[in-house]
């Protein structure tokens, strides 16, 4: 009897103790969570404070020293991502002074590819010129994602050295996705124009000539029109097609004669692109040429010529109507479809 009472009392004591310890643990957790939350909010306030006084990094240095490095780095990166100009330069200075640039450069040599990838991305955002050489090395990483992140960051840094790596990557079709590199280069804008023109003038292989012609078009480099015109009789079909496309994108009136010449190219792909490009120039001077192209033996050339005439407005549409009424049977079929789409208000695409 006594033993049973003692056992029950012991059990009760154990349960009370367990509940009590759980309560203490919960209270302690809440206490530390609140302290941590308050601490992180304090860091965040100081990070926002950099927008007013970018030299005030004392509290953030303490945070880094106290082991909250990752939180501070992520918040700084988040802020830096939204900024440009002088604000961005201030953020770069903060990254350098807190040792984050150095840390990320070191991380480019990590064993884990995901950490190298993260470092390559972060260095682009931190925008420090100190990262150019390490990123150029990272552009040869064994992992494709890391290589791509490295060249993307080089594009963001925008140095001549980095541009060279990007252009070499563009020419090396085995290791890279050209479309992605093109996108990065286009995002760099006018500052790369002179280098593109230099490489276009000296382009050795048909593939590199084609790529620089495309870049000329995507960047709308007006100073490149003469060079492009000179490449209109290139021996390579891909280069001539790219020339027609680029001249259409740039849209300068002086290209009318060259594009008219390409309408007589022996390859239908080139003629089709020339017909499309003439529509892009928006000049009524092209009407005659496009009307002649309605009799081309290739349907895509006829189609693009009809669409371009339609895009030119009343002067072009009059010619379409004339071709519909008295053109060849082939021209009539092509034109009828374009006229009908236009009448219904459906966008006419070549």
């Amino acid at each position: 009897m006594f033993a049973a009472i003692a056992a029950i009392a012991l059990l009760q004591a154990i349960v009370v103790l367990a509940v009590f310890s759980l309560l203490i643990e919960r209270l302690a957790r809440n206490f530390y969570a609140k302290r941590s939350e308050a601490r992180l909010k304090d860091y965040e306030r100081h990070i926002l404070g950099l927008l007013v006084d970018p030299t005030d990094i004392g509290r953030l240095q303490q945070a880094v020293d106290a082991g909250d490095r990752t939180f501070v780095r992520e918040k700084l990166l988040q802020q830096s991502e939204q900024l440009k100009g002088i604000d961005k330069e201030h953020m770069t200075d903060v990254f350098l002074r807190l040792g984050f640039v150095e840390q990320e450069i070191g991380a480019l040599k990590s064993r884990g590819w995901w950490r190298r990838l993260e470092a390559a991305v972060n260095l682009g955002n931190m925008a420090s010129q100190d990262a150019v050489r390490p990123l150029i090395d990272a552009a040869k990483d064994v992992n494709e994602d890391v290589r791509l992140a490295a060249v993307t960051s080089l594009g963001r840094l925008g140095t001549a050295e980095g541009l060279g790596v990007l252009l070499d990557a563009l020419e090396d079709g085995d290791q890279w996705t050209p479309a992605k590199i093109l996108e990065i280069l286009v995002s760099m804008g006018p500052k790369i124009e002179s280098e593109i023109l230099r490489r276009l003038a000296g382009g050795q292989s048909p593939m590199s000539r084609k790529l620089y012609v495309e870049l000329c078009g995507h960047l709308r480099i007006l100073a490149g029109v003469e060079l492009l015109q000179a490449l209109a009789d290139d021996t390579d079909l891909r280069v001539r097609t790219a020339v027609a496309q680029a001249l259409g994108i740039i849209g300068h009136d002086s290209a009318v004669g060259t594009l008219n010449g390409l309408l007589a190219d022996k390859e239908c792909l080139v003629r089709a692109e020339a017909a499309r490009a003439l529509g892009g120039l928006g000049s009524v001077e092209t009407v005659e040429y496009l009307q002649q192209a309605l009799d081309d033996p290739d349907w895509q050339v006829r189609r693009n010529a009809a669409v371009s005439l339609c895009r030119l407005g009343p002067a072009g549409k009059d010619r379409l109507q004339a071709a519909f009424e008295s053109g060849t049977a082939q021209a009539q079929r092509t034109v009828a479809h374009v006229i009908e789409l236009d009448r219904l208000g459906i966008p006419v695409i070549g």
Binding site: L51, E81, Q82, L83, K84, G85, I86, D87, K88
Partner: peptide
């Protein structure tokens, strides 16, 4: 356009 600068 974003990214932007506060002075601007």
């Amino acid at each position: 356009t974003k990214p932007f600068s506060f002075p601007e």
